[in-house]
């Protein structure tokens, strides 16, 4: 390892894009688990509704991540603004809806 050698800027953007990609994969896995949990026993109306809302949250996460991935691909390194807060709320919604789903 060379010391004091700044990493190429493109590499940082690439790593960040891959990190967003991994996050969408994690969100997809959890959404699929929620769908599985919704139909594993006899489906209840509120369980199906919760699973549908989780699917909506998943879609929102996907859109936010894709927009950021596109922006990083164009070399935009603007700050994230309120999107981290929105993402955290969507993940919290996952947790709350999952609780509704299994009860």
């Amino acid at each position: 390892m060379s010391t004091g050698d700044p990493q190429p800027a493109g590499l940082q953007a690439e790593r960040t894009r891959l990190s967003w990609r991994r996050t969408t994969l994690a969100a997809t896995t959890v959404a699929l688990l929620a769908a599985a949990a919704a139909i594993v026993d006899r489906p209840t109306p509120h369980g199906v509704a919760a699973a549908a809302l989780i699917a909506l949250a998943w879609l929102a996460i996907l859109v936010i991540a894709q927009r950021r991935i596109d922006a990083l691909g164009r070399g935009v390194t603007a700050t994230l603004g309120r999107w981290p807060a929105v993402l955290a709320m969507l993940v919290t919604a996952y947790a709350v809806l999952s609780a509704v789903l299994i009860i």
Partner: peptide
């Protein structure tokens, strides 16, 4: 992702 993994584990 750590949070999502915990939620996934719960499900």
């Amino acid at each position: 992702r750590t949070g999502l993994a915990l939620i996934g584990g719960g499900l």
